[in-house]
Design a protein around this nucleic acid. Structure first.
Lengths: 219, 219
DNA sequence: CGTTGTGAAATGATTCACAGCT
DNA sequence: AGCTGTGAATCATTTCACAACG
């Protein structure tokens, strides 16, 4: 049991970046990496990297650094992406289609097992290998297919209503692409991706002439 | 000249959320809003809201609150989205298409004036009203159409090369959808949107059983 | 050696609390 | 009365710096 006292929010975001970097290093056969190296690659200090990792355990080897392969495995365990999460995409519009076609989803431990939409013209179509089903089928399928994650790719106007359906169906987490704040009555976890917000962040930076600022997620 | 001493990064992110909320309130004809109201809607304290806004000026009216319309205008000025930004989409795959079809881009002051791809099967096609052009045309068009923003929707492998082309062409900012850290030699501003990172944030929250945590962007 | 893990110090962000305006 | 703007206090995060380890 790793103490797990209290983890700063920014730490969790950086962990994703570490993992991404480590995976590309593994492809290049790199065996070990120091906190310095990892920090440099990401524009962070070595101390930051070490402290972030230390929240979750002692993964390093003094004098050596971290084993790339080993650290990747640890990070996946931390995220919970070492196991498979069944996910449903709701909304088969442009964003939903982009999500379905995104190969990394599976690679990260997520499997899209159902796709829903309420547009009769879209229901029944097969997109990226998934038959689009009517919203009415959602509650039953969430149970039957053990769906834990809902990917919300519907217009802002219907996002809250669909969220309520997802929560009632017993989903555990929602990845929200709609540009609204969703009211989830503390029943599920939620992470939002909003293109407009990202654009505004960019416009702000450009306007300010703050060039080359450290990038950050959606961001 | 608004003092503009030093603005916390989290403030800039919240400003986008304020604007989003305010715009929906304006649609419902709401005239004024207090920091308390705005904070409640977003899960923030009233003091936070006031302090965030105070970094940029004195927009409030004691005893009244903020005029919705007025504050919207101020926020747009702050972001620089009160003027038009010409943007180019690079990469006409799934994500590029989703971006082109996203109606809010225009609404936020961004106008897509060119689309590029290097796939001969895609070049020449018209997508969402834009003819896809070969990458070779990029440098000339950035100048000719006064393109300030590049929207990078290409695979991770080619993202850095395209970034170099965009920088050489004289772009000012990049919205990056590729899951890599781009090396921009302090020449441009950059904001990244990475679905995988968002998914990991979500998986982490769900795994931890941290339900209902305050959502946050990407990002 | 080089590099980790971690208390202690420094910096940064949020909240408190209240004077002052309408 | 109701609400803003803001210094001062609190809380969170990052950086420093160094003992301990392979």
């Amino acid at each position: 049991m790793t103490s797990r006292s209290k983890i700063p929010r920014p730490t969790v975001k950086r962990l994703s970046l570490y993992l991404r970097d480590l995976e590309s290093r593994r492809e290049q056969e790199q065996q070990t990496i120091s906190s310095q190296q990892l920090g440099d690659a990401l524009g962070l200090t070595d101390a930051q990297v070490r402290k972030d990792l230390a929240y979750f355990g002692q993964f390093g080897h003094p004098g050596i650094g971290y084993h790339v392969q080993e650290l990747i495995a640890e990070l996946r365990k931390i995220f919970g992406t070492d196991r498979k999460w069944s996910a449903a995409v709701v909304g088969a519009g442009n964003i939903g289609r982009a999500v379905m076609a995104y190969p990394r989803f599976r690679h990260k431990g997520f499997e899209i097992v159902a796709v829903f939409d309420n547009n009769p013209n879209v229901i029944g179509q097969v997109i990226s290998g998934h038959r689009v089903r009517p919203m009415d089928d959602l509650p039953a399928l969430v149970g039957a297919r053990d769906i834990k994650i809902g990917i919300l790719a519907v217009p802002a106007e219907t996002a809250q209503a669909v969220t309520d359906v997802l929560i009632d169906a017993g989903i555990l987490g929602i990845l929200n692409f709609a540009p609204v704040r969703l009211d989830v009555r503390d029943a599920v976890s939620i992470t939002s991706v909003d293109f407009s917000v990202a654009l505004e962040q960019l416009a702000f930076q450009v306007s300010l002439g703050l060039t080359g600022s450290l990038d950050e997620q959606e961001e």
